[in-house]
Design a protein around this nucleic acid. Structure first.
Lengths: 144, 144
DNA sequence: TTATATGTTACACTTACTATAACAATGAAA
DNA sequence: TTTCATTGTTATAGTAAGTGTAACATATAA
């Protein structure tokens, strides 16, 4: 599952938990709601739990519950919880060839360029809350 | 070869052609210089030729030559020549599940979000010329 | 006409992704 | 304290994508 799909899946699941709060929802229920395999849901939720975005209880009547405020939880926090790797998978080939020193310079340049973009995206994600996503999702859908 | 690797490979090759201008350089020579397989070089150069960024001549003493001004050719033009797919490979899973209408809304939201980022990156690439890359590559390398 | 290039396609190999299954570990409830 | 639903984690089988290289038809300068 790509970083971006994971992110959108997590958001869908979290919005579902917010709706049902404080009633815990198990992986099977979330799975049915958003159409993603229950095992995958558990993998994603497990990461969110480690970052205390969600909590979990096992056994009968158990499941996942939102532990953070719907209005202040940001997209960046969700993203950070899910990924070690970056949302933009940029790589620059190993420097090689006769011109190895110059090639290293160009690689540095592009790594720098892509790193800047990455930071810029993260900066934007800081200002997006779960609540704003829910609101905007309604609006954007009307546009197309 | 990922979009970002292709882009940096193309830039390295174009800078090499600029250095040697107006003497054509064949794929074997470019390959040796930047350490990328000659066949792959031909694939990349072929796309640049179609967009008239480079020209090619076949036969003895043939090779590739830069057809555009080093100071005005932009990163966006190079990128556009290379890729149909986008530099950011974002996907959002198919809407499914009981909540299919809501899921579609969230997918639209994320597609919109990622599309905006894509546009922003392209906007930045518009202002970057081959010349500025060469200059900045020197500077950035000194920083680290 | 020959030698040398490009341009394109194909192929084998590896790596990554995907979706699901399996099951141990846990803890709430009776 | 036993039961059993649930999480959390690992494994697996199948598919898709990426990688690097080779092969060869096509073109053209000399």
């Amino acid at each position: 599952m790509s970083a971006s799909t994971k992110l959108s899946t997590a958001v869908k699941a979290l919005c579902f938990l917010a709706e049902k709060f404080p009633e815990p929802q198990n992986s099977t229920e979330i799975s049915k709601k958003i159409g993603v395999n229950a095992s995958k849901i558990r993998q994603i939720m497990s990461m969110l739990c480690k970052h205390e975005i969600t909590g979990s209880t096992k056994g009968t009547q158990g499941g996942f519950i939102l532990r953070r405020d719907f209005t202040s939880l940001t997209l960046l926090e969700i993203y950070d919880a899910l990924e070690d790797r970056k949302i933009m998978e940029f790589d620059v080939s190993e420097a090689a060839g006769e011109n190895i020193e110059d090639n290293k310079k160009y690689n540095s340049y592009f790594n720098h360029f892509f790193w800047n973009i990455q930071k810029q995206i993260e900066e934007r994600m800081k200002d997006i809350t779960l609540e704003s996503i829910k609101d905007d999702a309604e609006k954007i859908n009307n546009i197309g």
